[in-house]
Write a protein that binds this DNA or RNA. Structure first.
Lengths: 218, 218
DNA sequence: CGCAGGTTTGAGCACCCTCAACGAATGTGG
DNA sequence: CCACATTCGTTGAGGGTGCTCAAACCTGCG
């Protein structure tokens, strides 16, 4: 199965991920070779046991929870180079899915648990800081401010303050920002109309007036 | 200054906290004797250097951030017995204030930094879990559900599932739940009207229909 | 008793959601 | 290669939840 072929394979569970052949497994914590997850494939589910962390080689991941009636809250997006899958106890309390075709490496804790905490704490801190930032956005910002904060965050994480490639759909953005897709779409439209951003493609955003965007933050 | 006298002292800064005399300082991390903070007194501010953690002997604390225009998001309440003041880097990114007269003990990290992480990680985890729960509430629940979630959480943390004593004002609750005081008040009124709770006092809540409350959760 | 702070209640409005239809993009099958 | 299906995104109209503004109420305290 090639990368292109698998891009749109649907939720067929474990058949969907395939080991990618690479040499080199490094020294200390045991990194498995990266596995290919196709768009929409589940990486882990709420209630499963935590067995490892995950490093994203390429692609993107959404981590979310569901309410009983199906409402979804995406608590975080993770991009290439980031590590996720970290939970407070031995069980997962979230779902994780690949947003697009993604190469993901399982990282098993070092056998000597002593070093584990030194690696876990920074990860917990990063997750916590993001959650707290997110909390402020969801609690006290309006739709336009939320979308602006989201774009600014993505731009910063992708290392290009003028251009963002969004791997996720409007639906994902809405469930991340506590809005509906229509409201997200209208916010994009308004930012475009006001000349703050341009949209060369649906998932491609140019930040034209950085200043105007920043004015919507904090 | 007695505890009662100081209950309503206002923001008079550093004069407001007073050391309480107690014997006993324990072994490993250096706990200072508890300090009395009166209602509304700042414990630390955004931008200050982190010097220690804080243990609440009695009372309650709010931890919050401000937007430029004064909007406030309370990210957490802390009650007696809990530890707070933990931040991701060396500087505080939040404000912390005593909600009511509170006895708070500064806990300085053990000089051997080795043990520090063993104590920090569980605290980071607890903070993270709460933030993530809070995220779901702010992102995807309506006003009534938010207030219900808040009451259920407070009841559980106070160890009495049928009765809650709220140390904080409606204003604090609103800024915690991302609502206005009026909306919080209306939610209380509605829960009372529906017989879910009773209000023996403004800050005293009896949970009458636990089941109905639970139906509003997750 | 009057004042002050916090809370409740009401009326009106704004923002965002809901529902619906349309348009765009992409992949499928003929 | 084109028609079609499907998914995703946009746009519009209308309604509801929660916000704003305002006034009344309650409670504690000087």
């Amino acid at each position: 199965m090639t990368l292109l072929e698998s891009t749109h394979a649907l939720f067929d569970g474990h058949d969907a991920h395939t080991h990618i052949e690479t040499g080199s497994s490094r020294s200390e914590p045991f990194r498995s070779p990266p596995t290919l997850f196709t768009a929409g494939t589940e990486i882990y589910a709420q209630g499963e046991k935590c067995t490892c962390l995950y490093e994203i080689e390429f692609g993107a991941v959404r981590v979310y929870r569901l309410l009983a009636d199906g409402r979804r809250q995406i608590s975080a997006f993770h991009l290439a180079g980031e590590t996720f899958g970290f939970e407070a106890d031995a069980n997962h309390h979230f779902f994780a899915e690949a947003i697009c075709a993604s190469g993901i490496r399982a990282v098993h804790a070092a056998p000597s648990g002593r070093n584990a905490e030194n690696r876990l704490l920074p990860l917990a801190l990063k997750t916590l800081v993001r959650a707290q930032e997110h909390l402020l956005v969801l609690g006290r910002q309006n739709a336009l401010e939320r979308v602006a904060a989201f774009l600014a965050d993505m731009a910063e994480r992708q290392g290009d303050l003028r251009h963002v490639e969004l791997p996720m759909s409007r639906n994902d953005i809405a469930d991340y920002l506590g809005l509906t897709i229509e409201t997200v779409s209208r916010a994009f439209t308004r930012l475009k109309r006001d000349g703050v951003i341009r949209l060369p493609g649906l998932r491609s955003v140019q930040i034209v007036k950085r200043r105007a965007l920043d004015d919507l933050l904090t």
